[in-house]
Structures are given as C-alpha cells and as structure tokens.
Design a protein around this nucleic acid. Sequence first.
RNA 1: GCACCUGUAGCUCAGCUGGAUAGAGCGCUGCCCUCCGAAGGCAGAGGCCCAAGGUUCGAAUCCUUGCAGGUGCGCCA
Length: 581
Amino acid sequence: MNLFTDIHARVLEALRALEAAGDLPAGLDTGNVTVEPPRDPAHGDMATNAAMVLAKPAGARPRDIAEALARHLAEDPRIATAEVAGPGFLNLRLSPHAWQDVLRVALERGQDFGRSRMGAGQAVNVEYVSANPTGPLHVGHTRGAVFGDALASLLDFVGYAVTREYYINDGGAQVDTLARSVYLRYLEAHGQEVAFEEGTYPGDYLIEVGERLMEQVGDAYVDQPEAVWLAEVRTFATEAMMDIIRRDLKALGVQMDVFFSEKSLYGTGKIEAALDALAEKGLIYEGVLEPPKGKKPEDWEPREQTLFRSTAHGDDVDRPVRKSDGSWTYFAPDIAYHYDKVRRGFDLLIDVFGADHGGYVKRMKAAVSALTDGRVPLEIKLCQLVKLYKGGEPFKMSKRAGTFVTLRDVVEQVGPDVTRFVMLTRKNDAPLDFDFDKVLEQSKDNPVFYVQYAHARVCSVLRKARAAGIDVEDATLAAADLGVLTDPAELSLARKVAEWPRLVEIAGRTAEPHRVAFFLYDLASELHSLWNLGNDRPELRFLQEDAPATSQAKIALARSVTVVISAGLGILGVTPVEEMR
RNA sequence: GCACCUGUAGCUCAGCUGGAUAGAGCGCUGCCCUCCGAAGGCAGAGGCCCAAGGUUCGAAUCCUUGCAGGUGCGCCA
C-alpha cells in the first residue's frame, strides 16, 4: 500500500475521464505527471503537476485543466480538498481517515509494511566486498560491505530476487606472495628466524595461519624448495584467509549467498569462452596501445597485446586482456566472471567497488554490454573513502605505525549496529567521516542514538500501557477507532509514516540505501517532537491512563512509527533496541 | 593531457532522478523539566546552491564551457 501511488492512479483516472468527456484531447502522454508531497506542508498533503505538464500538449491553460481535475478528484472520499495554486499546481488535502487507514495497514502488515513489487521479481546479483584474500578486511572494505549488504536488502524489500556475491581474487600473483609469506610464518612457528623482504606480507595476522599450517603438515615443508609446497600452501593460505574474512563479515552481520573463486575460471576454458564470445562479435584484436598523454610511465615502450575493443561500447580506450608475455591481465578473468553471472540468468548486475576502482567502471560496463548486446545492465556503485577520527582528531591509518584499522577493530570497538548505521549516513559517492568517539555518543548529534531512542521510547510506552492493563497487541491496535487522531501534530506524524512506502521505492530505484537512514532520522525527529508536545499538552500523550480506547488509538500511531523504524533498520541491517542503556 | 566523482548556511551534509518562499544537525542567541526518561523539545539569526551561458511554464537538479578539490590512467590485482 502506497498512498501516493494510489492517488497518482486516481489522478490518471480522472484525466482519462476528462479525455472521455472531451475536456482534454485524447492520447495525452501522462508519463511526467507526478503526485508528491509538497516541500511546504502548508500547501497540503500532496501536489500534482498534471495541469502544467499537460497544458502545452493539450493546448489549454494550466489553471483550467487543474480546475476540471479538481472537480473530478473532489468526488473521491479520501480527498478532502483540491485547490489550484501557483502556476497550476493542484494541491490535495486528504481527509484524516485516509491517514488513519495507513496506520491500520502498517500495523496489520508489520515489518512488511512498505514492501513493494517494483522489482517484479527480477533476478539481481549484487557483488560486494570482493577483497583480496591476502589480508584482513579494513575500514574501506567495511563501508563497501555495509553498503552492498544494505543495498541488497533494500532491493529485496522492493521486490527483486537478490543474490549476494563475493568474488575471491585467488587467481593472481598476489596469492603466491601470500603463500610465501605464510611459509615464512610457518618456518617461524618451527623456531626459525625469518626476514620479511620486499614483496612479502609482514602482517601479524599471518602468524596464526603459519601456526595452523604447522599443525596440519608438521615439518614436511621445512627447508624444502617452493616446488614442493607452493601450490599446497597457496590453497591452504587462501582458505585460511577466507575463513578470517568470513568470520569478520559475520561479525558485521554480512551473510553472502555465493563466494565465487577467480581460480575456478582458470584451466576450465571459461576465460577462453568469454573472450571467444567477444571475438565472435569482432571485438578482440592484436594491437599496440598509445601511451597515456601527460602522465607517461617512465619505462613506456610500445608492446603488442591482445586487446578488447571496449571503445565500441563506450570506453575511452581499448583495454588489454593479455599481457605481452601471453598471460591474462586481471581484466580477462573479470570478463569471464561477469559472463558467468550473465549466464546464470541474472536480469541485472550490480558491482560495489571502492572509489579507487573508478577507472575500471567503463571497461567493465563495456564488457557486459558487449557480452549481452546491451540486454543485461551492469550498474556500478562506487564507495568513497572513509576518513577516521578519534575525538575529533584525524586518525591516520598506517601499517607501519601499527594503526592499521581493520573491520574487526571497528566492530569490536563500536559494535555492528553503530558501524552499519553510521556507514550509511552518507551517500555512497561522498567521503565519510567516522569518529570512533562521536559514533558512541548518546546525544542527538548521533543519528544512530537518535533513531534508536525514538524506538525505545515507544517500547517504553507499550510496557507502561501493558502494566496499566491496556491491550496493545498490534491486531488490537489496528482494530481500534483511530478517529480520535485528529490533532495536526498527530496527523503530521501519520503522514510521515505513510511516506515510508514511497521512500523505499525511491531508495530502491536510485540504489541509495542512505535515503532510508535519513528518512528514519526525520521520522524519529517527528516522533520526538510529538512526544515533547505531550509535556505541555497532556491530551497529546500516547498513554491516557483513564481512557483505554483513546490510548489504543494514540499508541497505534506510536507503534506504527516503530514498525517503520524496525523495517527500515532491518534494511540497514541494524537491530532496533527496546530500551537505552 | 584524459576519464570518473564532488562543489549547497561559519562547519558536517540532505534535497524525492525538473516543481512553489532551498532543508537538517553542529556551532551561535534566547526560551521550555514537582517531566510519559529534558539522553529531549521550541524559537531566532545565518544562502550569489562554485562561475558564466543554454534548454522551458519552472533549474541546486538537465546540457555546454570554465574554476576548485578528490580518485584513477598498458605487463598491480
């Protein structure tokens, strides 16, 4: 149930009636007709631009159309008044029972209030995190993980069939480096002195992996040449790292459906098959790239490589899929991976990348566009950097200084709920400040607290009502007579609740989960505002001790707010709290 | 040099994919507790929406150009 789309449909119906009556020419394009909440609430509950959009094609004056439309709409019982205003807006004011109905629906549907069929069950694959299995996840990955996860939940909520996927980069040379580094830790576990030279990973996190390797193989690899152990240790090390990564993701509340191994693309003909598919379209050729202008690499020399004609699909230059020594570039398995996703039947692909991979967007889109002849869209969401602060002071991340902040550090210090909410209080393409102290502050500066507080306040009212012997089960509240909710402050809050279904659809359409976080903040703000009015005006308090029926109506309003808050927090992956501590 | 992202209140940012007089929080100035938890609320001041053109009934939003900041740019994944 989305009151805005309902009224929108009603407006279109009225327009068709005007056409039928000859008041408007037939066959007008109503695609641009909108029904939205006006910026200024004084203008009413909803406004439609229909008259202005249609004036020109209909060859009529906007105000005339608006007035004719107003006469039709006034017949609808949900619409109290329809007034023409400004250049031709039609401002609608809904009758209180329209809003009261929304509250009833919210209580009846609970967590599913606002669920939409917008996605029409289309299969969408959301790929996120996809960090190299060579080290633990850090703060940057954390943002991508939270964003991707919330986006996946959001799309699910608006009616897509979502698959959450992690691409393991276990195919390249960095896995050999990982294996060698683990081997050093393994020798160390056997009591040897080792040195971590340039090109190895000296991080402490590999100590336990080396120890586990020792437990498993004893001294079998000690003082043996690489040929003996490299392949085995590579597999062991990647699996060990993926265990760590999975554990960290779990601590953050992220659960993947699929872990896809890059390695599985090698030696199986999958890369070749993907490139063959491109070759069949004449998009693969041998050639030499021009050096980038302005910033020419020191050791530039022309080389003949196998290239993908990505410029045919919107890229700026063609991209190599094979190095000059004949081995694959990173791009080649990536093409094969996306080809695989396409062949698994997804209608839409979404990749969540870090901002440092921005340069990769066009070629990846070009590849998918070429492989599917443009049938399967690939949307790439870039997450900007996270800037860390502690007590207002910038907090530099440095491996050498030992201030390498991992996902685990963050989650252990502030908890998964706070981490997730804060990471979603900014657009994905804007940089994010994360202050370890401020995010834990219990004040209204802190949006996490503010939203949770609103939820907890209502829970507290419910507890008190039960103690007073009032039935506040959702079913009872939904059946209560909500007609007593007529105060402007109460209707204003109900209006906000009614906006939720519309808001999630917008958030889903734009793939912007941060909109949910901002909406919850606004909603919480409205609740706090009404709550505070109760200080001076006792009749606005949710709990009316001597009037159970009135209490039920008012509590129904409050409860519907928490229904939306917990649904919204659910999308963000945050657990609502019942009381503050 | 090129590509992508970002320029909105003193600060940090929203702005519903073109709507009416541009919003919130912090900070600043004043109010409101024998209270349903004030861990909060109310009011006020504060704007050339980076700049200049264009598109149209209408632009912070779309297009062009410029300026500023960030990110990236063939054998790194």
